[in-house]
Amino acid sequence: MNARHARTTRAPEPHDRTGWTGSTLRTQVWVLTARSLRAAFGDYRLVFFGLLQPVVLLLLFSQVFSGVGSLPGVAAYDGYINYLMPATLVNIAMITAMGAGAGLVAETYTGVVGRFRSLPISPVSVLLARTFADTARLAVQLVVIVVAAVLLLRFRPDGGPFGLAAAVLLTLVVGWGLSWVFVAIATWQRNVELMQAVSFIAMYPLMFSSSAYMPLQNMPAWVRAVATVNPLTYAIDAARALALGRSPGWALPLAVLLAMVAALGGGAAAARNFRRSA
């Protein structure tokens, strides 16, 4: 009760005290990224299951589809895991990117983003922070799954540690670009169920009509056609080539370029939507 007493006897002094009316973009991004990271890593249950999910995904795919390893076009990889693993990196990036969008919607729902929108801060820094934090989360996931694959599934990429590191790095760039697409969808829809419905429609075709699980040559013609225009195919091909110590060719610059286009386009759309009415 003496809390209430204190409140009435010593009310806050609001005026001409602080003179704080805005911060630099760098401070905003730094403070907001730290906030999102604390939220992402603060709950050990969230961290544990977040890390477990991709491992389960990899275990399932590598075992259920192990027969694929003997198919033409895969046999040369000396085990399906070597073919599958780099693609799994990219798919994890995709799922995490989707989480970035869902997270933004969830925050809009609880209201903290609502307050951000009434503060003298740039919408870009709110959104940038979100994608940086999610990319940091992705980095931890990728390291865990690479270790798990090497230890549990005899993943032995010919590219060695450096090739693997390059593949992980590329995946981070792609994941960051993808997160902007889902952030843009989130600022557009602002409804968790709808957001997920829209995201899943985007996610499954991107994941499966690609070279992720099977070489394109084994697919029906129309799926092959979809896969060749699927931007993820280039990211997967590039990640696979890097990990396995082959030349990625055009796939690498194309994948990086596509990620940047996604980031710029998604970012522009998201920043515009973010200020729009609730």
């Binding site: 604390r38 939220a39 209201g111 903290v112």
Partner: peptide
């Protein structure tokens, strides 16, 4: 926005903090 503050059902705090 540099001169105002707002509170209400749609502008709230970070619940995890």
């Amino acid at each position: 926005r540099r001169r105002i503050a707002l509170t209400g059902q749609f502008a709230s705090v970070d619940e995890t903090l």
